[in-house]
């Protein structure tokens, strides 16, 4: 996604005089083109993320749209008060792009992972988090984020192409709903690729409605999702994020508020580091039950 991200910036925003890009000293082999095209509006703020966000808020108060780039955990956790007080309280167009959401940085270790980022940011006033899962919804997501001109967080990961049987909808993607569906799956971000791989091996594909949601906070149940849940009464949530403050906990609240009866609700989510061992992104997904095989096993448990 990082490549598509920089291409998008170069193509759509780099020429705009009111657009500023600030990096927290990262972007080797990705942002050189953006830097060249933007000239003085491309700023390296050094290894000083809190100041980067404060500076961004100051610039945004003078009419600039400012995108701040770093590795996801560095720009989320360290700058939380700057995001809340300086950016969100003032509803300024400062966007933080965090590369390597979830376990994206794999063997780099826990310091480089961001599995509580959505919980951390999505409750801030005026904030919208964007978690695209595919290259295709990344473009639509960034279009929306920059048009909204309000505080935002873009969580970048390793997205693939949208499968042929899924379509873009507002705030995410979905399969064509079937009246015979017996399971509703809601997924978020690039981990959806593991779900798609599992579904490819499942003989229950035609009995499952699949949705992805790429914006947080999740405060309104989309009509199509509500219809599917009312039909299936079975929910599986998949997210590369801790269960607290994430997609599953938000959906549980919305389903209860809507009074939708359920037979079964399973949340597959980032479990942290339950065995205290480290590895690739795929390794951590597998330890958390987010690997393809476990997803398929859990899907089969509904039938």
């Amino acid at each position: 996604m990082r490549k598509h991200f920089s291409e998008y910036i170069e193509r759509n925003l780099a020429d705009r005089e009111d657009f500023v890009f600030i990096t927290g000293d990262l972007g080797y082999n990705a942002l050189e083109g953006v830097a060249k095209k933007m000239g003085p509006r491309f700023i390296n703020a050094g290894v000083a993320e809190q100041n980067m966000i404060g500076v961004a808020a100051g610039m945004a108060s003078q009419g600039f749209q400012v995108l701040c780039y770093s590795i996801a955990p560095f720009v989320v956790y360290r700058c939380l008060e700057q995001m809340r007080n300086d950016v969100c309280f003032h509803n300024l167009p400062v966007y933080i792009a965090g590369n390597g959401g979830g376990y994206g940085y794999g063997i780099m270790g826990s310091s480089h992972h961001a599995i509580e980022d959505i919980a951390t940011l999505s409750g801030l006033p005026n904030m919208q988090c964007y978690i695209p899962g595919f290259v295709e919804d990344m473009r639509a997501t960034m279009d929306e984020m920059f048009a909204r001109r309000r505080p935002a967080y873009l969580r970048l990961g390793l997205g693939k192409n949208l499968p042929a049987d899924m379509q873009l909808v507002t705030g995410g993607t979905q399969t064509v709903l079937t009246p015979e569906a017996r399971l509703t799956i809601l997924s978020q971000g690039p981990v959806t690729n593991n779900l798609i791989a599992a579904l490819a091996k499942s003989d229950k594909q035609n009995s499952i409605d699949v949705f992805t949601l790429n914006t947080m906070p999740f405060v309104t149940l989309p009509a199509a999702l509500a219809t599917s849940i009312a039909t299936t009464k079975n929910i599986l949530v998949i997210e590369e994020h801790i269960s607290i403050g994430g997609l599953g906990s938000s959906l549980a609240l919305l389903v209860n508020e809507a009074g939708l009866p359920l037979d079964k609700f399973i949340s597959l989510h980032a479990e942290g580091y339950p065995n205290g061992l480290y590895g690739s992104q795929a390794y951590h997904q597998q330890v958390s039950g987010l690997g393809e095989e476990n997803i398929l096993r859990v899907i089969n448990s509904y039938f």
Partner: peptide
């Protein structure tokens, strides 16, 4: 600790403009 970064950002914006 917020004011100097904010004022610095405003100064940077003024320079760019």
């Amino acid at each position: 600790g917020h004011g100097l970064p904010l004022a610095t950002g405003i100064a940077k914006a003024n320079k760019l403009k």
